[in-house]
């Protein structure tokens, strides 16, 4: 049964790396829940007054332990990936044309890479401010 017989309103399936993208989305979800919990507890329960990282100095001190920037960067990569794959999924639900989809996908990739690069730079900068 050839698909072209029914091509008027059912186009050929559009394959893509969709299995893998979806798997990444569904794995980053729970992963980021765990890292988020750590991030939240640390931010709101550590620090000079035990009520969280309340001042600039608190944050700098917190970042001196190398495991902290490592966790924060991991969190950043996980959450940016999950969020942008999700955004692209919402766009796909609206049946974009192929050219629009390509443009938006590229914009999301650029946004994602830029955010991650910026975030890594920021984490390392903050860590280096303590001496």
């Amino acid at each position: 049964m050839s698909q072209s017989t029914f091509s008027s309103s059912v186009s050929a399936p559009r394959p893509g790396e969709t299995t893998w993208l979806w798997l990444i989305k569904i794995v980053t979800g729970p992963l980021l829940l765990i890292v988020l919990l750590l991030h939240f507890i640390a931010n709101h329960y550590l620090g000079s007054m035990s009520s969280g990282l309340m001042t600039y100095d608190d944050v700098i001190r917190y970042f001196q332990n190398p495991i902290i920037p490592a966790i924060e960067i991991l969190f950043l990569i996980t959450v940016v990936t999950h969020s942008l794959i999700g955004l692209r999924g919402i766009l796909l639900d609206m049946n974009p044309s192929r050219p629009i989809l390509k443009v938006v996908t590229w914009l999301l990739v650029i946004l994602g890479v830029a955010s991650i690069v910026y975030g890594i730079w920021l984490a390392l900068t903050i860590a280096s401010k303590g001496s």
Binding site: T55, Y56, D57, V59, L122, T125, I126
Partner: peptide
Amino acid sequence: LAQGPGAYD
């Protein structure tokens, strides 16, 4: 945070 204590606080 990267701009120093003044801006962040």
